[in-house]
Amino acid sequence: MQLKKKKINYSLILLVFVLFIPVSGLSVAFVTVSTLIDTKKYMEGNKLNWDVHFENLSEVYLEGTAKEIDSPIINEKSTSINSFRVGFDSIGDRVTYVFDVSNSGDIDAVITSISIFKPTCMVENEAALEDALLVCSNFDYHLTYLDGTELTVGDLLPKNSKKTLKLTMWYDGTSLPSNSVTVSDISASVIYSQK
């Protein structure tokens, strides 16, 4: 009697396995794409949009002998208030701008980052460096909500709402510089993200 070696058809098993994987893979891909399409259809149908921006920038509020040299400009997208220039002539002078941050979109927003930059003081010649130091020691600015409370990461800005902020700058101290000093880098940035 002869024993026949049964040859297992590995290639058949391999073929089935290989066929099974692509089918499963295709199914997963199909589900994902399908979900994406469904999601997209949902978004288009409900017209959800993201819109956080500045609005209602006030006229400048001046205290003491402070003055506005250049008014601020809001950019086209209303995401930047810049180019303002103010002047301080006396100790105690103060300048304030008030504006709204508006969430006119359909998605709740939350503050995820706040950056307040340290101002830089510059003079025209090296002999006046002490004046620069004096001014930078006595000049400060603050970005808060209108009632004076601090902005913090995690602050919520719900959809279809707005909050009023104020930017206040002041010069305190006991003396003015002997030479005019330019204060630059009066700069703050707040990042709002989808909640």
Partner: peptide, 30 residues
């Protein structure tokens, strides 16, 4: 198929952000 599904999932998880900036300068007179 795997590449498509990974890309599709990546697109589905994009997050909205907006950076609001304020910038200016001052002069302190003599």
């Amino acid at each position: 198929a795997l590449v498509i599904s990974v890309v599709a999932i990546g697109i589905g998880f994009a997050t909205f952000t907006e950076t609001l900036k304020i910038e200016g300068s001052a002069t302190v007179q003599t």
